[in-house]
Design a protein around this nucleic acid. Structure first.
Lengths: 206, 206
DNA sequence: CAAAGATTTAACCGGTTGGTTGAAAACGCG
DNA sequence: CGCGTTTTCAACCAACCGGTTAAATCTTTG
């Protein structure tokens, strides 16, 4: 196991290859449904070589989760309490989240798999940094509502609804495609229009 | 393998015990993450005895899915095109779906697990009966919109949004609890209030 | 109650899985 | 080049998993 701080070019490259392969495999099959052989093959390495860079299958999984969580929460973190128009600011958040479902579906499914199964390996982050961030942004949304700048809703459930309605396009992609049979990603353009109209109608102060 | 049509009382009882145990186990760990031993133990039977009633692990899983799918879609099927007030009719659908998340979270997670992983064992039902039902109800919603009885949205994405915003309380229960720390199920009462206000605001014709 | 059928399980099997070992190959550097 | 370090992998292992077998036990029924 590479111990030193300064990673060599080979370490950098192989670690990245393993994490990318693991993202592919874990997001499609979940933790238990994935095998080290699959990850190794997808990364172009032998199984013992994968275990040379990570001490165990679980170490790969937790490295992935903690490495991706920051990126995943970035759009919410960017929600600006000083925004000129809070409705537009929230609409931009919805839009950014939908874009992420389009461009990072593997990341979305990785978290979905983990949470559906009770978040056994990521509960610490949920009750820690995620919860703190949501608490902070819920206050911002409450303030906007108190000022009459947006319609008034429970801010936590509003945030949850945005997560659900945007991430479903990545997490439940198989279902959407089975029902809509899109040739490519057109249904996501329809989704963008729907979500824009829908959240705008609900959030604009009556 | 019990072949005969008329099932004995023992067959009835053990089949039901196995399916209930399998629902518990599959919904928590997914198909690959579940073992026959877990299911057998949870059902109070030995592993070979479980395989006396079902020919394989996969047979249990598909029996479960097909047995539950009808119940799962019942609320959508009940959506009545002749309802007096289409907004109320859709609100009732939202409410019924949320109740199901509260009362049948295992069933919800069973489907969520299956679909997140690409729906490999249930794609037929999705492109078949589920798609037909959604097509039918999408037409009903479109008609309501054309008549000006509800605000106009893409009916497919409206249905998807209802699924996402209600089922998340079952599927992502671990995350909700990590963020809200409810003692019991109070957060679902908040969710009911939120969803009612939210969908009513968005669906009521402007 | 006795025979036929239904139900249960101990013991077993072959394949897979996460992980280890030891030695060889490749690399970095004086 | 030469030597210590890093990287790679064939071979291996013990545990686990889905599934089978064969024989024992319990139920039903004539």
């Amino acid at each position: 196991m590479p111990k030193q701080r300064p990673r060599t070019r080979i370490q950098e490259k192989n670690r990245a290859a393993i994490l990318d392969a693991a993202l592919e495999v874990f997001s499609r099959h979940g933790f238990r449904g994935s095998t080290l052989d699959q990850i190794a093959q997808s990364a172009g390495l032998s199984k013992p070589n994968v275990l040379y860079y990570f001490s165990s299958k679980e170490a790969i999984h937790t490295a992935l989760l903690s490495e991706l969580l920051d990126d995943w929460l970035e759009p919410l973190r960017a929600l600006d309490e000083n925004a000129d128009d809070p409705v537009d600011e929230l609409m931009a958040y919805v839009s950014r989240k939908l874009d992420m479902s389009r461009e990072m579906p593997r990341e979305s499914r990785l978290f979905a798999n983990e949470i559906v199964q009770g978040a056994p390996r990521i509960m610490g982050e949920i009750t820690g940094s995620l919860r703190a961030l949501v608490d902070e942004k819920a206050k911002v949304i409450s303030t906007w509502a108190d000022q009459g700048k947006i319609a008034s809703y429970d801010p936590y459930h509003l945030i949850f609804s945005i997560w659900a309605t945007t991430q479903q396009y990545a997490d439940f992609d198989a279902q959407m495609r089975g029902i809509l049979s899109p040739a490519g990603d057109e249904h996501l353009d329809d989704a963008a229009r729907f979500l824009d109209g829908f959240y705008r109608a609900a959030l604009t102060p009556h």
